[in-house]
Design a protein around this nucleic acid. Structure first.
Lengths: 261, 261
DNA sequence: TAGTGGTCTAGACCACCCC
DNA sequence: GGGTGGTCTAGACCACTAA
């Protein structure tokens, strides 16, 4: 009784997703191929940060797979913070313009009281050429154009962070001190809205160092005060590095918070 | 035509899982209830670390739900590192006795070369009473029995970590300097095998400090060298704190590694 | 060859949101 | 009321492992 299996093949046209056919089998589950296709649409800007993406049923029809397969693809994208599901409303492209996202990359927390976002004061913004170490971390060539930013961040008017940022000049063409000054809120929000570059994940290396005279002056502390030094490399789609951020954190009344799972 | 829905109710006997019936609806999806039941079996020791748990089909029969529901429950347990799936073999209870697990909580990485596990030298092991701050973090009463451990850890014979551990005396009754000395490998493995207490997750607070004379001597460095100070609270099932660990890390040739997602 | 987890489908109903 | 994601089921086939 009943009918024959309606879709016996598990390797549809979407199998071409994933790049050049290589020597290895290059097998990939259907939902991974769908995930890659959705990621492409995110990357290309077909759906912009904050926007609603098509419903699961709609995507299932578009890709000619079942809703369950689309669901599993979106499950993983949601786990990676690329999209956000909202029951009854739909699935939205993640954005850095959200209270929720603001503390995803900022791990410096006050010892007492509730976390809040610091105020920025820009010390220097200039176009220059990438030193060798910066070039290596940003996947550039030594001497390529970069933008250098130096700023101090304060919590409740207490200077707490000195930060130096290096950005690929090509990606962030047109970024000026003025635009930085007038923009309030997390820099990743600015990068996303104005330059179409969304930070997806980052790696950090953390050490303890002594404050130099210059940094001590910026933070209004004694020279040789111990500081946390973090070196962060941020990546966008395709694991492309797009930001190098070197920060010095004063940990008198703040700490770097981490969860180990 | 065809049959009636075979299982129209979605609130079987398992609905009793989750504790006392309270004022709020206490609604919980079936798979969450199954997840709670499986977690109970893990906690009670029905399946011990490293062991194979029953197959999905078996658990589905036991709990009178579909395999898909059990699968979703196990998916979450695997995401939380409580169990490990191995295709073709089965699902296993996670254990700290695995190369894979050794670096889940150890985030201090060498700047060059491959990570490896440090050697421990114990400075002090004693039973004492919990100071107020320790008691608060371990959810004990001030003055409750605790075990205090102080040790130095070395990479390639270079002292790099000074660590002080505070453990609830009741949970770790019988822990002596001898057993620590003779046990090679991560301490969490010892805790799991000998005391039936498995660390599930932890939170850390990190700062920069100056080495005291005593710590400087232990690490063979100059006093006032900047060090990373981490305060870690580890939790077992039921979010019960079972370890307070205060570490000082020398970050001359190592760094604290973190991934932001 | 038998058993396990992994993938995929199809269809049902539920909870939530907004009109 | 109609649409969305969330849950649950049942059954098929695949990939991997071990005897």
């Amino acid at each position: 009784m009943s009918s024959a299996p309606p879709n016996p093949n598990n390797n549809p046209t979407a199998a071409s997703a994933g790049g050049a056919g290589g020597s290895s089998p290059t097998f990939s589950p259907l939902y991974q191929q769908i995930k890659a296709l959705i990621t492409q649409s995110l990357q290309s800007g077909e759906w912009k940060p904050g926007e609603l993406i098509p419903s699961e049923v709609e995507l299932a029809n578009r890709f000619k797979v079942s809703q369950g397969t689309v669901r599993k693809a979106i499950d993983e994208l949601a786990a990676e913070n690329l999209v956000m599901r909202k029951q009854g409303k739909g699935t939205f492209v993640s954005t850095h313009h959200e209270a929720r996202a603001h503390f995803r990359f900022l791990r410096l927390m006050p010892d007492e009281g509730v976390p809040h976002y610091p105020e920025s004061k820009f010390i220097e913004v200039k176009r220059t050429r990438a030193p060798a170490d910066v070039a290596r971390l940003l996947d550039l060539k030594s001497g390529d154009a970069v933008i250098f930013i130096k700023r101090v961040q304060s919590f409740d008017a207490v200077p707490t962070i000195v930060e130096e940022l290096w950005l690929p000049g090509l990606t962030f063409k047109g970024l000026t001190a003025e635009r930085l000054e007038e923009y309030k809120g997390p820099m990743y929000g600015l990068f996303e809205s104005e330059f179409g570059t969304r930070m997806i994940r980052a790696t950090e290396k953390i050490r303890a160092v002594c404050a130099s005279d210059g940094d001590a002056a910026l933070l209004h502390i004694a020279a040789n005060t111990p500081l946390l030094a973090s070196e962060r490399v941020s990546f966008t789609y395709g694991d492309k590095p797009v930001e190098l951020r070197r920060g010095l954190y004063l940990t008198e009344s703040h700490h770097y918070h981490n969860e180990l799972n």
